[in-house]
């Protein structure tokens, strides 16, 4: 089957972005990322970011037919309108080239929290011969894909807002460590109080990390602490 990809393109020096059409031959189960790679074979100037191809690295976040998704786990047949798929770069970040955006604002915000990266999980631990017992842990689910920034109306319009991912990591860090000093930036200007609870971040999060819910958890704890009821 033939699919029509309409890709929003912009490169440094262009006055404004424009949409370019690529026609690719693929079946309905083909991912948008694979379709973009097919298009790239015919046009090596098309720029997009990707790595793992299976929804783990978070590199290929894009706006696909108006909604933020990971291109690698989005099938053409699930999102196409007719046979057309419109692909745009994530919003809320400066575009570097075509579909590649500069996510450094998210990483800078995360660095202000120095987030924990592991959380304990339910289950029996184990022991290695001659070593201390092991506590089962997992990496935090956040992929740092930037989808939540693009989905969030505040992150798209308020430059100094720390953003959903960074604030959710702050919330997790407080839950895991109980250390309020780690989240002081998240409680300041551009922090949790700037969130207006549109909660689109949680709806769009491809990892089910629930950034909006975690922000509200942190707010709840901060409120309780301010009112003298929390540690």
């Amino acid at each position: 089957m033939k699919w029509r990809l309409l890709v929003k393109r912009w490169k440094e020096g262009w006055e404004k972005p424009r949409y370019q059409e690529y026609v690719v031959e693929a079946d309905a189960d083909t991912s948008v990322l694979d379709a973009l790679e097919k298009a790239w074979l015919g046009d090596n100037t098309l720029v997009f970011e990707h790595a793992c191809h299976h929804g783990v690295c978070g590199a290929c976040g894009m706006v696909i037919n108006g909604v933020e998704r990971l291109a690698c786990i989005t099938r053409l047949g699930d999102v196409a309108v007719g046979n057309t798929v419109v692909v745009e770069p994530l919003r809320g970040f400066p575009v570097i080239s075509d579909l590649a955006v500069d996510k450094s604002r998210m990483f800078r915000a995360s660095a202000r929290v120095s987030p924990e990266t592991l959380e304990p999980v339910e289950g029996e631990g184990g022991e290695l011969p001659g070593r201390a017992s092991l506590r089962p842990e997992k990496l935090l689910s956040c992929l740092e894909c930037g989808i939540c920034y693009s989905a969030c109306p505040i992150a798209r319009t308020m430059e100094d807002y720390m953003g959903p991912a960074a604030l959710a990591l702050a919330s997790k860090t407080l839950s895991l460590t109980g250390d309020w000093s780690r989240v002081s930036d998240a409680l300041g200007r551009g922090g949790v109080w700037s969130c207006h609870a549109a909660l689109e971040c949680s709806v769009r999060c491809p990892a089910g990390f629930d950034p909006g819910g975690l922000i509200m958890v942190l707010r709840g704890k901060a409120l309780k602490r301010m009112l003298g009821g929390g540690r």
């Binding site: 109306p153 319009t157 689109e200 909006g212």
Partner: peptide, 22 residues
């Protein structure tokens, strides 16, 4: 005005977002 237009961009959004915009 640009911020308002961004906030009201509801196409393809969830019930939560639509409620925020409303």
């Amino acid at each position: 005005l640009r911020a308002l237009a961004e906030w009201m961009r509801v196409k393809g959004r969830s019930a939560e977002y639509l409620s925020f915009a409303v």
